[in-house]
Nucleic acid binder design. Structure first.
Lengths: 331, 331
DNA sequence: CGTGAGTCTGCAATCGGTTTCACCGGTGTG
DNA sequence: CACACCGGTGAAACCGATTGCAGACTCACG
């Protein structure tokens, strides 16, 4: 039903080859012919069939995005960024959600790999070994995770933690509790390290509270233990955890920031709606998605694997001070 | 690099045609041959090239999902449902975000239409005319919107409003304010109507507060006007609005539910984390996505346009009572 | 005027599958 | 015994684009 390249050719009075060239290598065809082709294309509303093109060029013009959970606002934002930037390059995006399941993730990636030119893996849960294996035979860009020889975008977790600590120390806090995320999480490890270093530099004390699910419930569970450490401030793995923690503290009648200050990481939409509004380290989420697309397309265009391999973008967080942090209570 | 059907054929000692048949119409080929082919497929890890198949069958095995805003938790949930169900049928999903822009939407849909077998349009902002035009030459399923002759899934807005009203009336509320969403929104119209009817049936009074953006900010803006109506309860267009309204009421020192009760619609994750936790009408979001996929695939399989046209699924909401509603204050 | 270079265009092969059609051997029927 | 039929298979055409190669034409130069 839709017009084919032959229809255009017939209408323009040229051969299909010429139409093809007029569209993809305009400088190779005579200006007059080019104009005739353009007119015919216009008239028929012709759009080349991507499947047919892909068959011969080996490029599909599609990329895939794999995230652990679309309903998580962090990943939704990244997806939004990916999607917006991909459109600019006329690339379509397959989105897949693994439901936080590492095994499902590997299967999904394998299935998707055949249908796309490259994949963006956001906070993948797969093992380093699986990840490297995948990157072997597929163009992959990692977001929020690193793996040997695979290009990616990461956040400057150390820098973010440093900002949070500087803020809290300035407010007089000397003992700070840390609520970590999943033990296997790459981010948890780096954030723990960054926080620990920053606190050491300021001569303040770190109280580790352990690992919790990166959810509202995880935050509620962590609250009592965080308070029990005697810390006057709590930094959490992400905003969702911080908001859960806030809820539990409120339920127990503990004042924020009067008794305890709370800092999250991410700056999801919910954070400024929390009560009290959450102080947090804002991570540029859509930006990560946009850069991931640029990086992936660069990898695709460069046939030489040496260039892009190891290319790694770093994005910096920004401390957003709201109402959940205040001066440390006088003992 | 990846194995082609010819590789499989050679290994199995048969012709490509037989391999094709063994895979797509197994009953047409001898069991022994079929086994040999299966073994060869297994050994080579063969997966048919979708582009090549699509070229001849005219089916891509892909569907598209278009939403106004991926970062909106409501749409993220729908996307999650679509995505999960599509995977079950081995169908890949293109996701596109229109940024709430009706014009961009139409363009996006046109571009996407060529690359997929069908589209799921979730809460499309386009005009009825544009929508019908699109449905003319593309397989479309609507979610949260109706259009003449286009199949879709909608929510039973009337039923949801009825539940909310019954709850509020039972608590003694006699005058209820309604904060509407965008005037052009299909949902706004139906929710307004449903609320109005339910209130009439209970002999209670409706106070319309006007149209507001379906956002947190919209809710903050609506709060003062809602209070000024003298109503003892407020129903809002969605949960985001309700949460914004809650924030503004808190800022003004108005107690919820002591002075005013608040009811939202959607039941997004944020709602149970609000303070007070929000009473709301839960809409099955992932379910809508799942059904939309089923419906779309049914449309695709049925060459007769008469059957599916006008097929319309209705999903029912469920009142979730939390802490934002209570007995009407005694005058 | 012949020749070579250069520009532009068309022919035909190709990508990896699906599908039509013909064919083959074997069986059942008139 | 001739014929139709049937299950199973292969050869070849085809889907809609791209691209290597060769031909046609123009132009300049010797």
């Amino acid at each position: 039903m839709p017009a084919t390249i032959r229809d255009v050719a017939r209408l323009a009075g040229v051969s299909p080859s010429t139409v093809s060239r007029a569209l993809s290598m305009p400088e190779m065809v005579n200006a007059a012919t080019r104009a005739r082709v353009a007119a015919a294309v216009e008239q028929l509303g012709y759009q080349p069939n991507r499947a047919a093109r892909g068959l011969i060029t080996g490029r599909t013009g599609n990329i895939g995005l794999v995230v652990p959970d679309l309903a998580n606002p962090f990943f939704a934002s990244v997806a939004k960024g990916v999607q917006a930037r991909a459109r600019r390059y006329d690339v379509a995006v397959f989105v897949a959600d693994t439901d936080e399941d590492a095994a499902a993730e590997v299967g999904l990636v394998r299935a998707l790999a055949k249908q796309v030119d490259g994949l963006i893996l956001c906070s993948p849960r797969a093992s380093d070994a699986d990840l490297s294996a995948i990157a072997q035979d597929t163009n992959v860009v990692l977001v929020n995770r690193t793996a040997e020889g695979v290009p990616g975008i990461i956040y400057d977790n150390e820098g973010g933690m440093r900002q949070a600590v500087a803020h809290l120390v300035a407010l007089g806090h000397r003992k700070i509790a840390w609520v970590g995320g999943p033990v296997t999480s790459w981010s948890t490890q780096h954030r723990t390290l960054g926080l620990s270093n920053a606190l050491y530099d300021h001569g303040a004390e770190l109280a580790r509270v352990g690992s919790f699910a990166p959810t509202y419930e995880g935050g509620m569970a962590a609250a009592d233990q965080a308070v029990a450490t005697g810390a006057t401030a709590v930094v959490t793995y992400n905003d969702l955890v911080a908001i859960g923690l806030l809820a539990r503290l409120h339920a127990r009648g503990i004042s924020v920031p009067g008794d305890v200050s709370v800092v999250g990481i991410d700056d999801i939409a919910m954070s400024r709606m929390a009560r009290p509004a959450l102080t947090t380290v804002r991570l540029p989420k859509q930006e990560a998605g946009r850069i991931a697309v640029e990086l992936l397309l660069a990898v695709l265009d460069d046939p030489d694997p040496g260039t892009a391999i190891g290319t790694r973008g770093t994005l910096h967080g920004e401390l957003i001070v709201r109402d959940s942090t205040g001066p440390a209570p006088q003992p």
